[in-house]
Simulated scan of single mutants.
Amino acid sequence: MKKSLLALAALGTFAGAAQAQSSVTLYGVVDANIEYVNKVGAVPVAANGFNPGPSNRVFRLNSGGLSGSRWGLRGTEDLGGGLKAIFVLESGFNLDTGTSQQSGRLFGRQSYVGLQSDSFGQLTFGRQYTSMFDALANFSPTGYVTQYEPVVLQQGPNYRADNTIKYVGKFGPVSAGAHWSFGNGTALPATVGVATAIGGGGEVPGQFRRDTAYGAGLAYAAGPFGASISYDQWNPTIGTSNGTVKKAAAAASYSFGPAKIMGGYRWGQNKNAADVLIQRDDFYWIGANYQVTPAIGLTLEYNYDNLKNLYGNKNVDNPWQIAFVANYAFSKRTDVYLTTAYAKHAGLTMDSLATGFATSLSLANSYVLANGQTSMFGAAVGIRHKF
């Protein structure tokens, strides 16, 4: 009898804990498409002698076209007085193979815990998006679609950051954010033109600056008009020291009827461990969304990068890309889509030495131009379901 009472007491305690976590939500996206790309080579790394090889066409089944495939858990607990405890655990995966993305991390898209105040904003700790990523999210015509969006060229491969403290607050029409990472966690292997690997885990004893990152952003939205400004800096490992990757951006948007136009500018400057300039560029984008009917949406986006200096070369052909997206929604949860893009002087997503080929390495699907090629075209049709 005594054991039974103890068991019931234990079950009651567990039930109370479960009730306290009743706000936990399971969510996700599954997205797959069939893609065609021409003039594709291999990522030039040590294993292939830094040689992208001959031009090839490719037909492939991909995970992620409009959205990266993911599943996650999101939870809140009301602590009273307008204060809540919050957490997010979000895992990215390849739907076509069942493997994890983000270098095999279990919760590679986001993993954080923190506190949220109705009056003062939100403070969180863990792996999170940078402040620049948040500040520009509503000013990307394609909405950071996985396929063909040059987010790495725009913001750098460090737009997700490990070991991060982040603040977000909303004050009327203004949203503010700032973050600090003790060790960003982004790492790129040596590629053609780059003698050493870049980035790492950080948090190295005696080298506080190594792999740290920080930034801030402000966004304004009222009526049909929106605008934002942001700054981001990453101090990646280079050899046994660190370099600097700096970016600053401004963007604006305007909505009228079923249409929204938006665009922006991003300044960039990268230096090596000896404080020598290795990249300087000005990135521009402009585009529009048009909701033809409640079910049919169209997007057009143009991107251009003025490469002033790339590893000492001041006469680089400036890459540009034009992309088009059309989607048809069967419901709020399921839609089908077409994505297509043409890039010049870079691969699709504007992947090249200027990005460290980070997009191709991350997706494990090459968008690297083959030897002797200067342009690339790609198109895909797919289906997306949200849950």
Rank of each mutant, 00 (worst) to 15 (best):
A7Q: 14
A9W: 09
F14A: 14
A15L: 13
Q19P: 06
Q21K: 10
Q21D: 12
S22C: 06
S23G: 12
L26P: 07
V30I: 15
I34C: 10
E35C: 12
N38P: 01
N38Q: 01
K39F: 01
P44K: 03
P44H: 02
N48W: 08
N51V: 05
P52L: 09
P54M: 08
S55G: 09
R57L: 11
V58H: 11
V58R: 15
N62V: 05
G64L: 01
S67W: 13
G68R: 02
L73C: 06
G81H: 00
G82A: 09
L83I: 00
K84N: 09
I86P: 07
F87L: 07
V88W: 08
L89S: 00
E90V: 04
S91P: 06
G98V: 08
T99W: 15
Q101S: 13
S103E: 14
R109T: 05
Q110G: 10
S111I: 04
Y112A: 06
L115N: 02
F120K: 14
Q122S: 13
L123S: 08
T130E: 02
S131H: 03
M132C: 10
D134V: 07
A137W: 12
Y144E: 08
Y148C: 04
V152P: 03
L153K: 05
Y159D: 13
T164Q: 10
K166H: 07
S175L: 11
S175G: 14
G177K: 00
S181D: 01
P189W: 04
T191D: 08
A197E: 06
E203Y: 11
G206P: 03
Q207R: 09
Q207K: 13
T212P: 01
A216T: 04
A216V: 00
A221E: 15
P224I: 08
I229Q: 02
D232L: 15
Q233M: 14
P236G: 05
T237C: 08
T237P: 00
A248S: 10
A248H: 00
A250N: 07
S255N: 07
G257Y: 03
P258H: 07
G264Q: 03
G264K: 03
K271V: 12
A274F: 09
L277K: 11
I278S: 00
I278H: 01
Q279L: 13
Q279V: 10
D281Y: 12
Y284Q: 02
W285L: 07
I286L: 11
G287P: 00
V292A: 12
V292E: 05
D305P: 04
N306V: 13
G312C: 09
N313A: 10
D317L: 12
I322R: 01
V325G: 02
Y328C: 03
T334M: 02
Y337L: 00
Y337H: 03
L338H: 01
T340D: 02
A341I: 01
A343D: 00
G347S: 03
T349W: 15
G356A: 10
T359D: 13
T359N: 15
T359I: 12
S360Q: 04
S362K: 14
S362M: 14
S362L: 11
V368F: 03
V368S: 03
A370Q: 00
N371I: 07
Q373M: 12
T374F: 08
S375R: 13
I383R: 08
F387R: 05
